[in-house]
Amino acid sequence: MDEIFGIPAPLLFGQLLLGLINGAFYALLSLGLAVIFGMLNVINFTHGAQFMLGAFVAWAMLNFLGLGYWWALLLAPIVVGLFGVLLERTMISKLYKLDHLYGLLLTFGVGLIIEGLVRNEFGSSGLPYRIPPELSGAWDLGFMFMPVYRGWVVIVALVACIATWLVIERTRIGSYLRAATENPALVQAFGINVPRMMTLTYGAGVALAAFAGVLAAPIYSVNPQMGSNLIIIVFAVVVIGGMGSILGSVLTGFGLGIVEGLTKVFYPEASATVIFVVMAIVLLLRPAGLFGRA
């Protein structure tokens, strides 16, 4: 059997593929963060809690309303997104004129409160959520056993990332958004309602987090701390990609998933640290991130 660096080639291909799948989650989550930071200049530390809420709303829909996975994929982002809109209107919008730090503290605090409330209500050990029957099962790829659901995650994440990028870079609304980030007063003078655009952008970013949460529910344990475990890595992805750069965070998300996947084969103990090593190197060489504008 062929070996690469002492690891059998099939195992290595398998790990590359798994890295890509994890990268899909990083990309989807960092995309929402990048959209929010790029347009609102707010570092949204509630993102992990909103990801978790997406999964819990999916669970609640199934258990209280009898609505399965497909409905949850559609409705949970809307429900959590509306909650985001409320949060932006009542709290975050008051902080735009202040230093970044206030937004960070507020969203961090709100995240803690949400996590605590969910833990009080549902406990810490998690809730069951099954893979929908249409997507259960697996393909035998020869070099590894590939669950159908993981393939679905990669495809959906790619579609969501490309769609978001197209909306922001190629549509009229996107151009308003980008203009409003550069010079809100001028855009407002053209008769465009900038505050409402900000609100909707935040809502959309939050909806993306919830969407990732629903995607995660069938494969990760649905528990109150599921977001906080992931969010630190996702922040690193955003920093490496370049704060606010959409394309940067998507590419970095997938790329770092692969780097992490390979580390898990060669030296698993370092797999949580490798992303931060990359972050330190990137910040030293390119302080604005790989795709950021200085």
């Binding site: 099939p10 398998g14 790990q15 798994l18 994890n22 056993f145 630190i232 898990k264 797999s271």
Partner: peptide, 21 residues
């Protein structure tokens, strides 16, 4: 054996595939 970083790990697929192999 695969030792994974605690408590930052949520995805175990990589280790599971190693176990399978």
């Amino acid at each position: 054996a695969a030792r994974y970083p605690f408590p930052q790990t949520t995805d175990f697929s990589s280790y599971l595939v190693q176990a399978q192999a």
